[in-house]
Design a protein around this nucleic acid. Sequence first.
DNA 1: CGCCAGGTAGGTA
DNA 2: TACCTACATGGC
Length: 297
Amino acid sequence: MDIAYPRTDLFVRQIKHDSVSAVRIAGLGNYSVSKTLDCGQCFRFERSPRYRHEYEGVAHGKYIRVYQEEDYLDEMIIVNCKEADFWNIWYKYFALDRPWTEIREDISSRSPVLAHAAELAGDIRILSQDPFEALVSFIISQCNNIPRIKGLVEALCERYGDKKYTPEGDVFYTFPTPERILDCPSGLSGLKLGYRDKYIYAAACAARDGIIDKISEAQSTAEAEKMVRSIEGVGPKVAACALLFGFERYDAFPVDVWMKRALARLFPGCRDYSVFGPYAGVAQQYMFYCERYLEGK
DNA sequence: CGCCAGGTAGGTA
DNA sequence: TACCTACATGGC
């Protein structure tokens, strides 16, 4: 699962979108931009109020908009992006270097329950987010709902991130570095983070001291998990989400926390958690989507 | 007012 | 191991 996947079947072309640089990518296979950006794995993408069919957001210090024409899942357009940026940043961020057909097949083959989930959510991709951003975002996520998580992440960016402008002249803020969080004299007070502020402070200290690289270099997911869990406020759930969404550990799987409940509710009778395989975390995200969008609200 | 929201730490039996 | 509660905050 760690081997990059050469995409000679990907067709990338630079275009203009209302006089803004954009890139059209074809040959995605079966990639749902809307589900991927709206399934609760990232907190800085939203439907654009100005361009309703587009998602807009910030990652790796850059603002982009992303959309697919009439839900045509084989192609996507990234606005405010040049071809060099695509290959240097977004190709990996959108996880186009991964063998998603094989991953989905692997998950589907493991149980009828997972085959069902893959049918409903198999066009979701796991983004490769910035590790520190993923870690802090999922620390904030604990005991919070997704809209509020987004608001708190945004508040953190507004206080500590860099101020930048979109091509349309709107302000946006980058996700802060650990150093910026630690340097600020006002600390994290006033951001309404509640009891999570000291956890974020602890994560920033650990990141400043080099824990991100150490986690990235871990030999196994179990070893990586041990390192993330050493940060105060990071339990099994936050660790699994950080590893899955920030460190490309597709087998990280918070079976202890909500998965048992989700499985019991969605697929009564399923108790076999050992069959999830090397992409258990991906399967978990399929399940999360199923629960959130098809069974609940 | 009570309950819930992508939990965790610290305590107890 | 399994359960209990405090921890902050806001929406419904």
